[in-house]
């Protein structure tokens, strides 16, 4: 029994990791006042770039950073639209959700001889598993952490770092100030544009990492259906977590945990059909939202373009 718990926890971590990265992307962007619906598209381009660079260089770290870089380019695009040109942020995000997959598939066909699926990276060239072989086979810790990739720990560290930056540093204070009261922040001498650019670009970086966590750790290749919906789940988790890194983390873990339980229950022959079981994670999320979390409010200036000339 205890093994099963360990396995469910392990599955939870595995499933949540890409979501955590991406949700952090949402957190940083929206705290600075820019809505980012484009997380899904940024994740796709990250997953593709990660798998491609990983395949050609054989180095997972270069691939991972490359994925972040690809995400950053889309982040920059979003920032140019939303910060410099006062775009409707939702609209720009939706555009990115079309552009990301479109470009990823287009490039894939060019790099991989017409294929929309990249070639598989072998185990040694994937992300390392730091605790592989540390625990004895069949122990609790083996099932819990033995097979987890470095991306899991990086995601957790990222959450902590982001929390620290947002709430314990001057920069974080500025980001939040820009997200709540850009006008006031401006009068205090904070460069609203610069802060927003920075936040949105990093948002792309994190979402790109999220995609790479799928294509470099959970599996070892990219295919067009790999991301299918994870970005939107991460977006939901970010809102669920009330726009806070720690809250989003919990929401992602909850979702991953529900998937773990679904897989666990699926091995038994129930009267309940597997389609109903598959609904569990989604229903559970809604129930918890209604019952325990309650009202969520975004940063005050979230979604509102800031225009220096139109102050007051």
């Amino acid at each position: 029994m205890i093994d099963n718990v360990a396995l469910i926890l392990g599955t939870t971590l595995m499933y949540s990791t890409p979501l955590i990265f991406t949700a952090m992307g949402g957190v940083i962007s929206e705290n600075s006042g820019v809505i980012n619906i484009g997380l899904e598209g940024m994740m796709v381009i990250g997953a593709f770039t990660g798998a491609t660079i990983g395949y050609f260089t054989g180095n997972p770290w270069i691939a991972f950073i490359g994925a972040g870089f690809a995400g950053a380019i889309f982040g920059l695009l979003h920032a140019i639209a939303c910060v410099s040109f006062g775009a409707n942020q939702v609209v720009s995000g939706i555009a990115i959700n079309f552009l990301g997959p479109g470009l990823a598939l287009f490039l894939s066909r060019i790099f991989f001889d017409g294929a929309t699926m990249t070639l598989s990276i072998n185990l040694d060239n994937k992300m390392p598993r730091p605790l592989s072989g540390v625990f004895s086979q069949d122990s609790f810790m083996y099932y819990f952490l033995g097979n987890r990739y470095a991306t899991v720990y990086i995601a957790l560290i990222l959450v902590f770092l982001l929390w620290y930056v947002l709430y314990k540093t001057k920069l974080g204070l500025r980001i939040r100030a820009v997200g709540e009261h850009p006008t006031a922040a401006d009068t205090l001498g904070i460069d609203v544009y610069k802060i927003r650019y920075l936040s949105v670009i990093f948002s792309g970086v994190f979402a790109g990492f999220g995609g790479a966590a799928l294509s470099l750790a959970i599996v070892s290749n990219f295919r067009p259906t790999l991301v299918s919906g994870h970005g939107f789940i991460a977006l939901a988790a970010m809102i669920f977590g009330k726009w806070k890194p720690q809250g989003a983390l919990l929401a992602c873990l909850l979702f991953g945990g529900a998937q773990g339980i679904t897989v666990f229950l699926g091995q038994y022959d129930f009267k309940v059909s597997s389609q109903i079981l598959s609904m569990i994670p989604y229903v559970l999320t809604m129930v918890i939202l209604v019952g325990f979390v309650g009202r969520a409010s975004a940063p005050a200036a979230d979604g509102i373009p800031y225009d220096k000339e139109q102050k007051y």
Binding site: T11, L214, V219, T225, V263, Q267, S274
Partner: peptide, 20 residues
């Protein structure tokens, strides 16, 4: 042992089922 993933796309779920 037999289990269905209810998906043709969710690689993470396939991995979780196989791990189990």
């Amino acid at each position: 042992l037999a289990q269905y993933a209810d998906s043709f796309t969710d690689a993470a779920k396939g991995k979780a089922i196989a791990n189990q």
